[in-house]
Structure formats: structure tokens, C-alpha cells
Nucleic acid binder design. Structure first.
Lengths: 337, 337
DNA sequence: CTGTTAGCGCCTTCAT
DNA sequence: ATGAAGGCGCTAACAG
């Protein structure tokens, strides 16, 4: 049994209300008793029971984070930024995953609800209606990289379209005319947007995407096997735009194994701007997303909404940076970190 | 205001205890009322308030995870395994970081305590006495990769010594006589153990480590800059054992940039067995640690202890696997995933 | 079987 | 300025 406010009260020889008043500074208490209480609390190592507090205040001090899955540097960085914000706010993070399964998604939400004051939800594969239905609970929600625009919620989405568009244009400018896309899972909003960005750029250049779009995924494995396929194609593409950095890294590994020179024979671009991308061989051209910063801002925003300090809904499309490195440039001179 | 047990009771026309009994199956209730209650609960979308439960039961359903920091694939995989276990158990994870700072460490513990039923603590830089002092609270603790052997707690440590020893021997067997070590932060238990493993192997071979130990770190940046230093050394080492995979990947990047052939001119080994290591160019020889599995087991173990189902304290040194790939072998044939 | 009651730890009126 | 009492939502005796 843990030490309660009653223990402190009896040790200090006062009532529990006095203890409460001293500890919370709710109303003035004679200095003499004040000291007594403070000493008693300190001696006993008292700290209030969060459950009791939460029962009264209807607040938990917790923020829920629901991710499609935890894995890879992307989520690490995201959590990193979130944790930083949470620590500053004196709140804590309840992390859970949906494995991209609607069923698990709902279960996770149910489990999290009531244990947290708000939710950050990243669910690229979530249909807009489902996102909308989530909003019917009164729990504040901040969506990340989710198709939730126009909804009554805060939304931070990366500019997947612009990023893919810029990367494709970069390759076009370098003279590539057959640019393959290793596409991500098409049930995911971000993957669809990247495909759209790629397609728009190719089309605008008067070229066609016919036979150039490979059904891949966000993993190294997908990048590896798609790259193998691409090597068989005739005419063979001279450049690859991958679904993300991991996918690109998998492709690079395949090309290296096949003895294909990068970027001379085939150029490769990724997406996300992971730390890994700066240290690959050769260093990877990519579209850098400020992942950690977004994690940080999402939590700050959520906390503000929980406190009622957030008036309008912020719906932002976060710009991404084109980072050109050796995997797409003919003569890489140095690692650009 | 959320729907309470009282709302369900009045809707079903019964008392709140009946509702409680039906929902918890505590004691038999006439089928007729049972249905009424079930329907009412369902219609109202009732779910019990965790804070109230927790106030009664002294259990929160939460497990705290305290990490040195969140970043990189290692922690992703760890959390992945932990999340899997937590979901199976119907518990949730409260994640926090200490940034390897004793002050923040204590603060994080204080914040987590009482909100969780148990704690998984990974703190390689924690002195044994501090670990011991953590145990004085009644909260069950499972230590990960922490110097806590002999303490009254469950401990899962990776066999850092054996891993480093095996990697060094592998390099010695390949004929290397000047093997440089890029050492990790020496205030960290795991880094010290790896240094010891390396030193023991070198010494056992009748060689010396003089001038071969570089003060690096667990990051790509450290690996990169140490590799640059190593290239300047005379006589130049013919192999590098890095503090971990990220460090090794940084070193590989530096060597590549300097035009040094791997493994022909310099062989490189990492430690951890990250997914990245299998896809680097060339693929990285490393000591694979079952990170995800350890995360899973740590949580299961913690839950068992919380439930009182764990009698003795399990103190395990988890074996690591030597994974030999192209970065240390003369003729890599294929990526070994 | 089922309703009533007493807390779990705390804050907040309401008296004093 | 301070103590007593009520109640947050729920479960577990305790009476019926």
C-alpha cells in the first residue's frame, strides 16, 4: 500500500484538506502548518495517486499515439520528437500500433480511449469516412499522414505529391526518359500521393508511365525484388524512384549485387530523408521529411487542443526538401549529411 | 461526461451491482436481466472507467518502458516486440526516455511510477548501485542491457563480450593482425563489454591492442570520423570492428568515399544485426542480437511478475549470432538477409 | 439472485 | 484558516 494524503495528514497533525491545500496552493495556510505538511510529505515521499486525480478531473495526463506499426527509423524519429514534446509538457505517451488492420485499429482506439486525453493517429490506409467516425468521440485527435482533409481535426500531412513530383523532375532534368517507379501499397494515402506526383511529372514531360510502375512496398525487401524485375525489363529503365528510402536502399543492394553501377547505369531516388540515406553507398537522393519535428509539433498541438487552447483546426501540408546525393548525380563528391 | 455504470443500470432498470456482476461475470444473474443489462450497455456504448478501476484494484494495466533514447532501428525493433507482447496481454505501453541523463532518468521514473504496474528499464550507463536503488520501490522491474547482475530483478543482457570476441576471432582467422576497434561510450555497460571481448580475443592471439582502440560512439557520425582517422594511421589497420552497426555503416560510408575497397583493403564488422546491415553495400558482417524477441520476452516476463506468476529472478545473458557477410569476406556472393 | 453500502485517494464545497 | 463531508466510477462485502 502506497502512502496517501491521509498518512501525510496524520503525520503532520492536520486534516487532509489542509494537506491538499498546501500541496496544491489552493488557498492560504498558516506558515507553521505549511511547513509541517511539507516536511511530512517529503519524509513520507508522498505523491498523489494519478488514478484518484484522474477520477476527479477527468484528465489522465496521457496522450495516445496510434501508429500503423513500429519499425524502422521513420517511427523512431517520430517518437523521438513526440517524446521530447511530451516531456516538456509533463505528459506521457501511450504508444500502440494497428498493424494497418482496421480491426486492430478499432481495438487499439478502444483500449486507448479514456486512458488518454487526446490521440495522435497516423493511419495512411484509413479511409476518410473512418477517420471522420473517429472524430465522433469527444477525444481530441491530431491526424498524421492520413486522408483527413476537410475534417474537423488537426491534420499534418507531408507533401507526398510535391516530393515525388520534384524527385521525378530532378531525374527528368538529368536526362532520364525511362524512370521506373516502385510504388508503395496503394491502399495507403501517402503511397497514392507519391504515385500521383510521379505520374503528373512524367505526363507533363510528354512521356508515358506505361510499364514503368512496379507494385512494390515500403520495405527493403520490396525494393530489392522490384529492382531485380526492373533489371530484366527491355528497354531497361535508367532510373528508379522508390516508394521510400528503405525501398530505395533495397533496390541499391540489388543493383550492387547485380554489378550495376549507380548512378551511371541506373540512378536511384528514395523518399523520407532518413539518416540511413545519407550514409548509404552511394549516398541516396531523397525528399527529406521533417519527421522528428512533425512528431514534436503534433504533440504540442494535441496538448493545446486538450487544454482548449486551440481555436481553429490546423490542416497543414508539410513541405519536403529535395536532397540530391550521389545515387542520382553523376559525380558525387562528398557525403551530404 | 462519459456514460457510467449508473446510466446502464437505470436504462436496464436494475441496480449498479447487477450491471457490474453481469459485465464481470462475478456472480450469476437471472438471464432476463442479464440480457437487459447487456443491451443497455451496448446501446450506450458503455465501457468502464479505467481510473475508477485502477483506484480500486491498485493496478493500472500499463507497463512503463524507459529507454536511454528513442532512435534508430534498434529501438524500433525493441518497441515492436514489446508492443506485440503488450497487445497480447491487453496491457499498454508507456514509453519514455532518459536521454542517458541521471536527472532525467529519475524524473522519468517518478512520472511513470503509479501510472504503471511495472517497468522495463534499459539503461546501459546506469551504475549498478543506481539500478539497485530503483528496486527499492515495490514496482517490478525488468532490466535490459543494464549492469544489474546479482540484483533482485529480472535481467536480460545481450552477450556483448562473446559477440565482440567472436567477431574479432573471425577477423583474426581471416588473417587480419591489425584490427582497429571503434569503441562505444565507455560509461555504457554494453560498450565496455564489447571492448573487453575485443581485447580478450586480440590478447589471446598474442597480439596487442596498442593504438588500435578509437574512441568513437554508437552513431554513424562517430563511425564515419573514426574511419577517417584510421585511414591516416601507419601502419594502417586492415580491419575495423565497430561499436555497433550504425557505427560500422558510417565507417563504410567513409571508406567508400575515400575509395578504399571493402573488404579487400579494409574489412568491417558491426554489432546488433539490424535490418540495415543486410542491405548495406557491401552487406555487413555483424553479431545479430534478437532485439525484437527480447522486447517481447521482457514484457511477458514483466507481466508475469506483475501478476505474481514469476517466482525466481531470471537473469539471462542472451546469446548473439555471428552473421558473416561481404564486408568481411573476400568474395561475397549474395545478400544474406 | 439482487439491491444497498462502504470505501479506493483526492479535491472541493460547506461550515466553522 | 481549517476541518468535515460529499462524490468522481466502480467493485466487493453485506443484507436481504
Amino acid at each position: 500500500m502506497s502512502v496517501t494524503i491521509r498518512d501525510v495528514a496524520s503525520r503532520a497533525g492536520v486534516s487532509i484538506s489542509t494537506v491538499s491545500r498546501v500541496l496544491n496552493g489552493t488557498s492560504p495556510v498558516r506558515e507553521e502548518k505549511r511547513q509541517l505538511v511539507l516536511e511530512a510529505a517529503d519524509a513520507l515521499g508522498y505523491s498523489p495517486n494519478p488514478a484518484a486525480l484522474s477520477l476527479l478531473s477527468k484528465k489522465t495526463g496521457g496522450l495516445g499515439v496510434l501508429l500503423p506499426f513500429v519499425g524502422g527509423e521513420f517511427f523512431s524519429e517520430l517518437l523521438n520528437g513526440m517524446d521530447e514534446a511530451a516531456q516538456e509538457l509533463g505528459m506521457f505517451l501511450l504508444v500502440s500500433t494497428s498493424h494497418r488492420q482496421p480491426g486492430e485499429f478499432r481495438k487499439a482506439i478502444a483500449a486507448l480511449d479514456k486512458r488518454v486525453d487526446g490521440l495522435v493517429v497516423m493511419a495512411p490506409e484509413l479511409a476518410r469516412e473512418e477517420a471522420a467516425s473517429l472524430l465522433r468521440t469527444k477525444t481530441p485527435v491530431v491526424f498524421l499522414n492520413t486522408d483527413a482533409r476537410g475534417l474537423e481535426a488537426d491534420v499534418f500531412n507531408f507533401d507526398n505529391h510535391a516530393g515525388a513530383h520534384a524527385l521525378t523532375e530532378h531525374l527528368l532534368r538529368a536526362g532520364h526518359e525511362r524512370i521506373a517507379l516502385i510504388a508503395g501499397p496503394q491502399d495507403a494515402h501517402d503511397a497514392r500521393e507519391r504515385l500521383r506526383g510521379y505520374t503528373d511529372a512524367i505526363t507533363a514531360a510528354g512521356l508515358s508511365t506505361d510499364g514503368l510502375v512496379y507494385s512494390g512496398g515500403f520495405t527493403r525487401e520490396a525494393g530489392f525484388s522490384c529492382a531485380m524485375e526492373i533489371l530484366e525489363a527491355t528497354p531497361r529503365p535508367s532510373a528508379i524512384l522508390a516508394a521510400n528510402d528503405y525501398c530505395a536502399l533495397g533496390a541499391i543492394s540489388a543493383l550492387h549485387q547485380a554489378g550495376v553501377e549507380i548512378p551511371d547505369e541506373i540512378a536511384v531516388c528514395g523518399f523520407d530523408g532518413l539518416a540511413s540515406a545519407a550514409y548509404s553507398v552511394p549516398p541516396l537522393t531523397t525528399a527529406r521529411v521533417p519527421v522528428q519535428e512533425i512528431g514534436y509539433r503534433a504533440i504540442r498541438r494535441l496538448a493545446a487542443r486538450v487544454d482548449g487552447n486551440a481555436s481553429d483546426h490546423e490542416q497543414q501540408v508539410v513541405p519536403v526538401d529535395l536532397v540530391i546525393r550521389g545515387s542520382s548525380a553523376p559525380a558525387p563528391e562528398a557525403v551530404e549529411a
